[in-house]
Design a protein around this nucleic acid. Sequence first.
DNA 1: AGAATAGTTTACCAATTGGTTAAATGAGTC
DNA 2: GACTCATTTAACCAATTGGTAAACTATTCT
Lengths: 111, 111
Amino acid sequence: MSQQLDLLFYSLSDQTRRDILRRLTLKELTVSQIAKPYKISLAAVSKHLKVLEKAKLIGRRRDGKNHIIHAEPKTLIKIDSWIEFYKQYWNESFDQLNTYLTTVGDTKNET
Amino acid sequence: MSQQLDLLFYSLSDQTRRDILRRLTLKELTVSQIAKPYKISLAAVSKHLKVLEKAKLIGRRRDGKNHIIHAEPKTLIKIDSWIEFYKQYWNESFDQLNTYLTTVGDTKNET
DNA sequence: AGAATAGTTTACCAATTGGTTAAATGAGTC
DNA sequence: GACTCATTTAACCAATTGGTAAACTATTCT
């Protein structure tokens, strides 16, 4: 249950993995294509992909010797709904200001 | 820059830290009050708090010997805006269905 | 000053991480 | 079958993690 969220957040806590995910969202790519821009080894990229895959942020199909990797951005919905709860709080100060204005009166001519 | 996102996501990749954050959002608490429900040591909780503090998900003020900890839920806005980019993609299939219906005609009597 | 309370910091431990290189698998090609 | 090409897996390493217990710091109380 929350193990899935652990995995999700953990996957996204690495800049390289976030970058991979972003690129995959725009276009599916093979493992080699994914690896090209980074200075780390192909094996390291393979490991990053496994992390993302475990979190279900990406999926893969096979085409001959190539593994074609695609993003599963809808998995991020889970984070979005997790954050949902906090949204009512993060503009608290703004809301308090509103409440204040309403109480005091937000028009200037009330006499 | 993205170091801040690393910290944020990393902080949230732990169930205990997420739970602490949730409780703090509802009500500010001292370190001991935070620690009470968990079976881990106070020192361990203190470390979790440091992680959350570094990510700016919580803040603290001092009241005598007590450290009073509060949530900073607005920090989560950063994750929310990060996710924003992906939202246009995660309902892709749904959008494709819409496009299809519009193309074919979504009313049944067009002859 | 001395004792109690609330937290933090230090030193340690086992497990995990991100990285490496080298060996192993899998799938097309000669 | 032998040879590449694409990728994964294995063995290793240094650094970091979440946890502990014990020592330390800061504040209040007597």
